[in-house]
Design a protein around this nucleic acid. Sequence first.
DNA 1: TGGGTGACCATAG
DNA 2: ACTATGGCCACCC
Length: 113
Amino acid sequence: MDHKKDFFQDVFEVVQLIPEGRVTSYGAIAKFLGATRSSRLVGWAMNASHKNGILIPAHRVVNRNGMLTGKMHFPTPTAMQERLEEEGVSVVEDKIQNFQQHFWDPSIELKLD
DNA sequence: TGGGTGACCATAG
DNA sequence: ACTATGGCCACCC
């Protein structure tokens, strides 16, 4: 029970706001939260969420190259890709096709006026 | 308590 | 163009 919200909790909230069929990167989330340098922590938060039983669309978060670097942490090796393709995002060789087209930048989409 | 870790990123060579 | 490396910092044991 912390007085201030955990960094992880902030990450979870942002991830939950990613629309279906869109994706973002660890760095973009970190930047939005004002910790550009802590992009690794975002990925770590994903892992922690799984551990805490928190359900978030973690499959919509990839690295800056659009590669499914986190797929190995899903229940099955293909779960992440399958989730994305269900939402209309093509993945070839663990890489999102037309990445920029699907990219959802919280710094822009959630911009405070 | 302190040090190692990591689903990353930017920069330098 | 690609590869190597250093920084980053909340969390875990």
